[in-house]
Amino acid sequence: MTQTAAEIATILIWGFAATATLSAVMFGAQRLGYSRLSIPFLIGTMFTGERSGAHALGLVFYLLGGWLFAFIYYFIFASIGRTGWELGLLIGSIHGLVLLVMMLPLLPYVHPRMASEYEGPIRGRRLQPPGFLALNYGYRTPLTTIVAHALYGLILGARLALT
């Protein structure tokens, strides 16, 4: 195996582990009633209005997204010139914050099934928008989201090595 192939394999393996951890924390927060933010569900409902199908489809996209972000993290580490769990934790936390502050609030404009507070629900657009910091999905949502993403970054920071 070449060095590049080994590096890609490492990113894929630890990208998967980090995504699984992130998902476990987010899913646990849902089941414990701390938050109702399910990114796989939000992704899946972009493609189908069938609830269980949306969960399954969303999970596939979410896993692929987790791998994609593992590569992005790797390039960020490379551009900084170092790795480490502390750096991963910091980047992960920023990632979670960006998701909450910038990405999720934009969702109503791009999600075909998301309702708007101005127009109300209409046929085909019925999902409640996340609102500021996704607080519509529970007041602990910002906390659980940042913790989950911080863990994602921590795992990648700790396990990815630069050559």
């Binding site: 399910s38 629900p121 999902l127 409640q128 519509n136």
Partner: peptide
Amino acid sequence: DEADASVIVPFGED
């Protein structure tokens, strides 16, 4: 809704 984002349904014919 138990664990996911709320689904809000329209009135009228729906």
